[in-house]
Write a protein that binds this DNA or RNA. Sequence first.
RNA 1: GCCCGGGUGGCGGAACUGGUAGACGCAAAGGACUUAAAAUCCUUUGGUGCUAUGCACCGUGUGGGUUCGACUCCCACCCCGGGCACCA
Length: 814
Amino acid sequence: MPEKPYNPREIEPRWQREWEKTDVFRADAHPSRPKYYVLEMLPYPSGTLHMGHIRNYSIGDALARYKWMRGFRVLHPMGWDSFGLPAENAAIQNNRDPGEWTRSNIAQMKQQHRRFGFSYDWSTEISSCEPEYYRWNQWFFLKMYERGLAYRKQAQLNWCPRCQTVLANEQVVNGCCWRHEDTAVEGRSLEQWFLRTTDYADELLSDLRQLAGGWPERVLTMQRNWIGKSVGTRVDFLLEGSEEKITVFTTRVDTIYGSTCVILAPDHELVSRFGFEKQAEKMIRSRASSNPADVEKEGVDTGRYAINPYNNERVPIWIGNFVLLEYGSGAIMAVPAHDQRDFEFCRKYGIPIRPVIRPVDGPLAEEPTMEEAFEGYGVVENSPPFSGLASEEAKQKMNAWAKERGFGRGAITYRLRDWGISRQRYWGTPIPIIYCQQCGVVPVPEDELPVLLPANVKLTGTGQSPLRSVPEFVNVDCPKCGGKAERECDTMDTFIDSSWYFYRYCDPKNNRAPYDTAKVAAWFPIDQYIGGIEHAVLHLVYARFVTKVMRDLGLIGWNEPATRLFNQGMVIRDGAKMSKSKGNVVDPDSAVEQYGADTVRLFSLFAAPPEKDLDWQDAGVEGMHRFLGRVYRFVTRNATGNGSPNGEPSNDTDRALLRKLHQTIQKVTNDFETRWHFNTSLAAIMELTNELYARESEISTGVVQETLTKLVLLLGPFAPYMAEDLWHELGKEGTLLHAAWPDFDPELAKEDQVEVVVQVNGKLRSRLAVARGADRAELERLATMDPKIAPYLEKKTVRKVIVVPDKLVNVVVN
RNA sequence: GCCCGGGUGGCGGAACUGGUAGACGCAAAGGACUUAAAAUCCUUUGGUGCUAUGCACCGUGUGGGUUCGACUCCCACCCCGGGCACCA
C-alpha cells in the first residue's frame, strides 16, 4: 500500500470523535473481567493544565490502556475539584461569578483532557462544587459532629494574608502558604471547626506498615515524621507552696534525676498567673516573626520552684521561648547534661548541669566541663533507687513507680494536630451549623441539606467571611426551638472534597447517600494511585483519615484507600519547576498544536523514568515526532490491509526479526509489570523500528505483517491515536484498546548466537561468537585457543578459568 | 543536626541478580536525494595516544577495601536535590 504521511492533526480529532461516539472507555463494558482501579490525582485548582499534569495523566493512561489490553475492566475516572480560591479571586479581581468562572474552567480543562485522548470513563464525572456534592460533604460533617469528631474551639491559627483565610497545619510549607511560597503565614486567633485527626494518629501511623511496598518509601517517611509519635512519660511536678501541678512530658524519664529546672512555654496558663505576660508576649512575637531554628534561646526566671516527685528536689521554674504550648504539655523538665538544647539554655543562665547517664563502656562525664550533652542511652547513675539500670529498663521501672505513686504515667504524644477546616471564604461547602441564642450549637437537620451558597454576594477579599454580609443566609429560625438563630458563615476547606472523591466516582449520581456501599466495594481499594509528591502530608493524610472515619461510620470495610501509590517527578525547564506559582513553563496546548497529543505524551514518558524529574527539551520533542512519523510511514507502506498475518519465518532475516520482536514484547511487558521505566520500553520499540528499516527489503510479507501488528499493539498505551489509526490501516476491526496485549515466546526471544567475551585477569581481550548454550569446557577451550588471547598466556601460569555460560570467560593468570 | 533520594559522554538517560559501561534519543560532523531548501534516508560520534580500517591506555563524584571481575557490594569523605527540625 502507498506510504502515507503522518498527520496527527487529521488523525487525532477523528479518533477522538470515534471514541466518544462508541464509549470505548466505559468501566462497566466488561462486567465479567477482573477489576482495576487506576486514578490520577486531581489537578491543582489553578484552572489550566500544565506539563506536570500531562505527565501524570500520560502515566496513568498508559497503565489503564495496558490493563484494558491485559483483559481487565478498568475504572479510570476524571472529575473536578472545587477551585475555591482561584474562583473567588477571579470574582474579586474581574467581577466574575465564581460559579460561572468555575464552569468555564472545567469546560476548558475537560477539552484539554479530551484532546490528549486520555481513556477516562466520562460517565463517572463529578464536580465537587455542585449542590449534590455539598450535600454529602455536609452530611459527612454532621455524622462526624454526632460522634464528636468535629468540634469548635478558639485557637491560634495560621493565616495567609494573600488568601485572606486560615490554613491547616499541613497547608503551611516552610512558614509560608502552600499556594504562596513567598508569603509568610501570620498567627491569628479565631473560633474554628476542627476534625479530630489526632484520634486516628496511632492508626494513621501503624497502618503505614501495610502500605509499605505499595507506597514510595519517602511518602511513608514523610507521613511518619508528620504524625511524629513520641513514647514517653508525663510527670507532675508540684508547684511549691500549693497543691497545683505542672505536668511535663519527656521521652527520657531515665534522665529525670539530672533535671535542674522546669521550663514553661510562654503561652502556658501559669505564665500570666505568675505575672510574666509582658515578657511572654514579646517571646511569642519574636518567635512568630522569624525562623524558629534561628531564634536564640531566651528565658525568664519566675522566682518560683517546683518539686521533682522522684527525689523531692526543689528546682526553679523558668519561662523559655523554645518551649511549645501545642506539643506535649506545654512545659518541660530541662536536663542540660543529656540534651543539647537544654544544655544551651542552662549554660546561658548558669543553671547547674548534672550528668546522670554514663555510656555503657565509659565513666560518668564530669559536671561543668562537658561541652556536648551526652544524648545517648546508657546506664543510669546518681538516681536512687534506679542507679545502675540501663536506660530502657530504668524507663520502664520509673514509669511504673510514678504510676504507683500517682504522680505520672507512660504517655504518647503526637506532632499531628487536629485538622482545622473553617475557611473565611465564599466558594466552598457551607458548614451546616446553626447557632441559637437558646439552644447553642445546633446541626442543620439532614432533610434540610444541602445548605447552599447564596447568590450575588459582594466579595471583597478582606478576610471577613463573605456569607456574614448576607442577612437572608445568616438569619434563620432555630431548627430545635424555632427562635432566632444564625448560621455558621465559614465554608469548608476544599481538601474535604478531594478526600473522598474517589469513592463518589464509583456511584456519581447517587442522591440518597454519598455512595452505595456495594458499588464502592466492587472497585475498591484503588489499585494504583498516581500523583505528585507535594500531597504526601496533605491530601494523602486527609484521604487516609477520611477513609478510616467512613469505615467507622459503617460505609466501607477497609482501612486504606489505595494499595499502591506512584509519585511522578516534576517537569522542569532550564531548572525552573512547573508549579502553580511559576505557571506553565511549557504550554501543553501549543505543544499539541505543533506536534500532536501522541508526541507530547510520548516525550513526557521517554525523556526520563517517570519517578524522576524531567527536563523539557523542545529538540527532544521533535525527535519523538520524528520517531512516530517513521513508524507511521513504515506501517502504511508495508501494510497489506488483509488483516491476517502469517508469521512463519522463511529465512534467517525473518527469524532474526521475529527474535527482536519477541524481545521487544518481553521488554515492554516486563516494564509495565515492574518498574514502569517507559523510557526503556520506548527505546526497545525504537530499536525494533530501526531493525525493520534496516531489513525492509529482505523480510517476507507475513513476518512483516505480524511484526507490524504487534508493534502497533505495543504502541497502543503510549501513542493511542496513532496506534488506533494504524490498527485500522492493518485491516483490523474494533478498537485496539479491546484487542489482546501480544504474548511473547521466551524461546523465540532467545538469541541462538551469542557473543561471549574473553577476559584475562578481568580485562576484556577478545570476543567469541558462539552458539547459545555452549558448555563450559567448550567455552574454555575456545577462549584459551583464541589467537588474541594466546600472547597473554605466554610464560604465565593459568591459575583459574571462570566461565559464565553465554556471557564470558575470564582467564586468571600470573 | 537527623532522615530519604541522587552524582555515568556536549545533553536527557541505559546497564533489572557483581559479568561487554555509554542502549535509545537529542545535539554535532560527513554523505545520498534535490536547481535549492525543508523533509527523508545512510554513516561517524566517551577521552587520550599510536607504527591508525586495528591496537593500547584511561574512564561511572573522591579516596580506600572485598572480588577472578565493581556504575553495581563494604568503609570514609565531597557535592547536588528533597523532607523534617528548638517536638522535650
